[in-house]
């Protein structure tokens, strides 16, 4: 999925979770929970919605990557694989 498709998907699911929010004004780096007043049930519903829209399993340990709008877009665009800089180097180092 390219970035535009990913963004469209994320925004659509967010709209389902917070129908009254103006998503155009969500700062790209503020946490979604703060920007949209999401509580834990809302956030879970958001993750479930993303799962249904993308088929990604989205384990809980990935939740931190979904905290901001940009984080979500990147996560969905990469198909759920870890951000390029973070995961790989660490994994290689520990497996040695």
């Amino acid at each position: 999925m390219n970035d535009d498709q990913a963004r469209e998907t994320v925004l659509r699911v967010l709209h389902q979770v917070a129908p009254e929010a103006d998503l155009g004004t969500v700062p790209s780096d503020e946490t979604l929970q703060e920007a949209l007043d999401l509580d834990s049930l809302d956030f879970l519903n958001f993750v479930v919605g993303l799962h249904h829209a993308t088929g990604l399993e989205i384990p809980e340990r990935d939740y931190p990557q979904l905290s901001t709008l940009e984080g979500c877009v990147g996560y969905v665009a990469r198909g759920g694989s870890p951000a390029p800089t973070a995961g790989k180097a660490g994994a290689a180092w520990t497996s040695r």
Partner: peptide, 28 residues
């Protein structure tokens, strides 16, 4: 039709609600 998604923002019944300050009219 707005898809329905639940949420449980917390607040005591009597406390001022900081959350939905600008209640945009929703179809709900």
């Amino acid at each position: 039709q707005p898809p329905s998604i639940p949420a449980v923002p917390p607040e005591a019944p009597e406390t001022a609600t900081p959350a939905p300050a600008e209640p945009t009219p929703t179809p709900v």
